[in-house]
């Protein structure tokens, strides 16, 4: 049975749990360092404020153990703030945090809330709805990183081995495409 750990320090983690439950996947909330020692098949870093989650991960002693597990190949999905947590270069605010993924991201890349928008675009060749909430985008990808989606000329999804990062919110729409892509990584690892 697959179990996905959802980082539950701040933000829209419950929405990820609901979306994964719809696909028949069990989840557990990760709230403290001890929660990272249990067997997990994958991890989700949700949307929220990257500054809040990054600080709490540091203060609660979760940063180093999580970094280690991701580097050792644990599949991880980062959405919006989660993408920022994974990036090794962050423009427009504090960071980087986990730094496990060779991508440069720009925070609040579309401006403030009045710049938030919905779009429909191809993700791995399939048209899906995308919600961008004070979203970042990916300015540059490093070697070995594959771009998976582009909106208005900017990269909004990428993968690097076990790591999948998207600038939008699959947990806020009914479309399971991003989760299926992530769960395929999980299946390959298990």
């Amino acid at each position: 049975m697959t179990v996905i750990g959802v980082m539950a320090l701040q933000g829209a983690f419950a929405e990820h749990q609901t979306a994964l439950a719809r696909l028949g996947v069990d989840t557990v909330q990760l709230r403290k360092a001890a929660d990272l020692t249990q067997p997990l098949d994958g991890i989700v870093l949700p949307g929220g404020e990257s500054t809040v989650m990054g600080k709490l991960m540091n203060d609660l002693g979760m940063m180093a153990p999580l970094q280690k597990r991701v580097r050792y190949g644990l599949p991880v999905l980062g959405t919006c703030a989660g993408l920022i947590l994974l990036a090794d270069k962050v423009d427009g605010g504090p960071g980087p945090w986990l730094s496990t993924m060779p991508i440069a991201v720009r925070r609040n890349a579309y401006g403030r809330q009045l710049g938030s928008f919905s779009a429909e675009a191809a993700f791995t060749g399939r048209q899906i709805p995308m919600e961008f909430i004070r979203a970042p985008y990916i300015e540059q990808v490093g070697p070995g990183t594959k771009e998976l989606a582009t909106v208005n000329g900017h990269t909004v999804a990428a993968e690097y081995g076990n790591q999948l990062a998207v600038a939008f919110h699959p947990e806020l729409t009914d479309d399971p495409t991003v989760y299926r892509h992530f769960l395929a990584k999980v299946d390959r690892t298990v």
Binding site: E15, G47, G48, E49, Q113, S116, F117
Partner: peptide
């Protein structure tokens, strides 16, 4: 409708926060 949904969604991103 899109705008109202996006606005409710920003509040969702603030959950669990101060």
């Amino acid at each position: 409708k899109d705008r109202y949904r996006l606005n409710k969604e920003l509040a969702q991103m603030l959950k669990g926060g101060v």
